[in-house]
Simulated assay, not measured.
Amino acid sequence: MMNIHKIFELLPHRYPFLLVDRVTDMQLGERITAYKNVTVNEPFFNGHFPKNPVMPGVLVLEALAQAAGLLSFETYGEAPGEDKVFYFVGIDNARFKRPVVPGDQLILEASIDRVRGGIYKYKGVAKVDGQVVAEADLMCTMRPVERNC
């Protein structure tokens, strides 16, 4: 449905922070399914944890948010660029069910719950081998870029 080249067009993230490898299904205005192949070469595994590598839960949520962003950018025809960026503004009801480890394929499912007043709200579920590893309600908004440098 969407390969890495299209993802590069829509998301401003790059290595090591791009956390979506491919989109496998999308229903505009409703839902998306994407995945991240988790490898032992991920930079965060060096410190989290050296003898027991576990993907940080906040990065699982970030991967869900990136997938949700792809859904919104395709649905509403706007994407971040030089003059605007998509920010997290809230995460509610986050739950982590089991660790994500090297060798896992993290399946990312997000659905649009509502869009109101420039705030996008999604329901996100991350799975490995059909089992839920994390879930959360995500809220994001698009804002102009503030140049702090």
Rank of each mutant, 00 (worst) to 15 (best):
M1K: 08
M2A: 14
E9V: 12
E9A: 14
L11Y: 10
L11W: 09
F17I: 13
L19M: 15
V20M: 05
V20G: 06
V20K: 02
D21V: 05
D21G: 08
T24E: 13
D25R: 14
L28P: 14
L28T: 07
G29F: 11
R31E: 12
A34F: 06
N37S: 13
N37A: 15
V38P: 02
V38G: 03
T39N: 11
V40R: 10
V40C: 07
N41Q: 11
P43A: 09
F44N: 00
F45L: 08
N46V: 11
F49T: 01
P50E: 10
P50T: 08
N52I: 04
P56M: 10
G57V: 05
V58Y: 09
V60H: 01
V60E: 05
L61Y: 03
A65G: 13
Q66I: 08
A67C: 10
A68S: 15
A68F: 07
L70Y: 03
L70T: 01
S72P: 02
Y76E: 13
E78S: 12
E78T: 13
P80R: 06
P80C: 05
G81W: 04
D83V: 04
D83P: 00
V85H: 03
F86S: 09
F88H: 08
V89N: 07
I91G: 03
I91V: 15
I91W: 04
D92H: 07
F96T: 07
K97T: 10
P99A: 10
V100F: 05
V100Y: 02
V100D: 05
V100E: 04
G103R: 04
Q105C: 09
Q105S: 09
Q105D: 00
E109R: 10
E109N: 13
E109V: 02
A110T: 12
S111V: 05
I112V: 14
I112F: 02
D113P: 01
R114A: 12
R114V: 04
R116K: 14
G117W: 01
G118I: 03
G118V: 03
I119V: 15
K123M: 11
G124D: 02
V125D: 04
A126Y: 06
V128P: 01
V128C: 11
V128M: 03
V133S: 07
V133E: 07
A134K: 01
E135G: 11
E135D: 12
E135S: 13
E135A: 10
A136D: 01
L138G: 05
L138W: 02
M139Y: 08
C140Y: 01
T141D: 00
R143G: 00
E146M: 07
R147Q: 12
N148R: 13
C149K: 12
C149Y: 10
